[in-house]
Nucleic acid binder design. Structure first.
Length: 470
RNA sequence: GGCCCCAUCGUCUAGAGGCCUAGGACAUCACCCUCUCAAGGUGGAGACACGGGUUCAAAUCCCGUUGGGGCUGCCA
């Protein structure tokens, strides 16, 4: 369908990696890979406020984390300035652009007194100004006709040239602006398809005009809908949680985030939601991209995360949870610790939504001095039967030949039977004694992993504490 | 203000004129399962913004209205 397209993802370094950017990058990547094309990474750092190497590293590592790999780049626009300067010069020489020394305030004032709509009034268009410090280079937009964007997702969008101001190509300090650098680079990098957020649609006719002025053919455009917040506004750093890094830190798995993101504005056309990369590659197409903005819904993304976490092998869960474990003072990463973690892993991977929840599920195994959840402790303490239950449990468990989950369960069921208590009721104080909490992995598995010695002493200890409290 | 885009359950979406008394998923509610919590299972509630056309037939096509959003910078 498309022959070896060349696409690019061209983020501007802002100090964090925006989820909307991640989605755009993903669509570009999928499109390129689907048709055997090339994915180029280009950093748009022409604005001096946006060029810091650690920000660029941040973009790269976030992309890598999401498994979005680039074939070329990262190219830095800040290192390609001469290219833009040459293009600007040729535009000026051809009479397609002119220098302007107007200050913003002057323009605003003129426009206001003339009762014109806000924007540039073309004051310098015919003044024949030469290049000089402080003078910006503006593009001479044709007065008549229209510029059409044949958008791959939106169809034909026409703009009246009369509504487009003479925009700035090069700043007074010689720095190129977005439209210029963007066009020059897309040309130089032989980009065939520009897949980007819809917010760029209104500036696309400007870009097309520049391509034409340069005597070149414009690439194909595809504008994908933006991501919005619950108030349906474009996601912004100020008011919304937009950094991919934040979600990584919260404990989202990259595959969960990627899978969630691909479904924002695109669908495979059937009821499938959990998709592998292979399936996405097989199914992705621009004409299945929707036209309306999507709400970035963390709750639904959490659902994907739960799913992918539940699929993790014990080893993979450990690996993924390591950063959270290592932040805990009880974790030393010893072989013993790892092996008991691995034993309990199958029980915890269906019980958490975020990797950051892992420590609270396993901490009881590693704490020398068990930390009790306050509410859990007081609910056990307030129940008069707790102490007897605990003392009795020590007797029962210490007589076991083998301290395994099955034996523990059999013993407890028999005990419940004879005492007339439900298994559910009976396990409450035991669970709190063992794990310090009311919720957690299945009790008998937890006990098996902890081992008989520690279990028995914790049981006795809590019983003792309740005695003292009396 | 001007230009542009958008419009199916609360949310993400399926739907490319009859298959739609509109399907799925998340969230939500109920029930089942159950050693806690999850997971899983079953079921419920829940949408074509409005008004005109076109057509034998419209969620699907056209026009308008309304609503939302984006752009309008010597940011990208």
């Amino acid at each position: 369908m498309y022959e070896a397209p060349r696409v690019r993802f061209a983020p501007s370094p802002t100090g964090y990696f925006h989820v909307g950017g991640a989605r755009t990058a993903l669509f570009n990547w999928l499109f390129a890979k689907r048709f055997g094309g090339v994915f180029v990474l280009r950093i748009e750092d022409t604005d001096e406020a946006r060029n810091r190497s650690e920000w660029i590293d941040g973009i790269c590592s976030a992309l890598q984390w999401l498994q979005i790999t680039w074939d070329e780049g990262p190219y830095l626009q800040s290192e390609r300035l001469d290219l833009y300067a040459r293009a600007a010069q040729s535009l000026f020489d051809a009479g397609k652009a002119y220098y302007c020394d107007c200050q913003r305030s002057e323009i605003d004032e003129r426009v206001k007194t003339a009762g014109l709509p806000p924007g540039y009034d073309g004051f310098c268009r015919d003044r024949g100004l030469e290049v000089a410090p402080g003078r910006a280079l503006r593009f001479k937009v044709p007065k008549d006709g229209e510029t059409v964007v044949d958008d791959l997702v939106r169809g034909r969008v026409a703009f009246d040239n009369g509504t487009i101001d003479d925009f700035v190509l090069v700043k007074g300090n010689r720095a190129p602006l977005f439209v210029l650098a963007n066009v020059v680079d897309d040309l130089d990098m032989r980009i065939t398809h520009v897949i980007r957020a819809e917010e760029h649609l209104p500036t696309t006719p400007k870009a097309i005009l520049v391509y034409e002025a340069l005597g070149q053919k414009a690439p194909q455009f595809a504008h994908v809908p933006v991501l919005v917040n619950e108030k349906r506004q474009k996601l912004s750093k100020r008011r919304d949680r937009v950094a991919v890094e934040d979600y990584k830190e919260m404990g989202f798995l990259p595959e969960a985030m990627e899978n969630y993101l691909v479904l924002l504005g695109w669908s495979p056309g059937d009821d499938r939601e959990f998709l592998t990369r292979e399936q996405e590659l097989e199914l992705f197409s621009l004409d299945r991209v929707g036209h309306s903005p999507s709400f970035f819904d963390v709750t639904k993304m959490l659902h994907f995360n739960k799913h992918y976490i539940s699929l993790l092998s014990p080893e993979d869960l450990l690996q993924a949870a390591l950063p959270y474990l290592e932040a805990c003072d009880f974790w030393d990463g010893s072989t013993e610790q790892r092996s008991s973690f691995l034993k309990l892993a199958p029980e915890i991977c269906t019980r958490i939504g975020l990797l950051s929840e892992v420590p609270s599920m396993v901490d009881f195994i590693y704490q020398g001095q068990l930390k009790f959840d306050e509410a859990a402790f007081s609910s056990v303490a307030s129940d008069k039967g707790s102490k007897d239950l605990l003392e009795r449990s020590v007797e029962i468990f210490s007589s076991l030949d083998h301290f395994g989950r099955e034996e523990l369960e059999v013993a407890c069921r028999a005990w419940a039977e004879e005492s007339g208590l439900s298994l559910r009721k009976l396990q409450v104080p035991i669970r709190v004694a063992i794990t310090g909490k009311k919720i957690g992995p299945p009790l008998f598995s937890a006990m098996e992993v902890l081992g008989s010695k520690a279990c028995l002493s914790r049981l006795a200890e809590l019983a003792h504490m309740l005695t003292e409290a009396d």
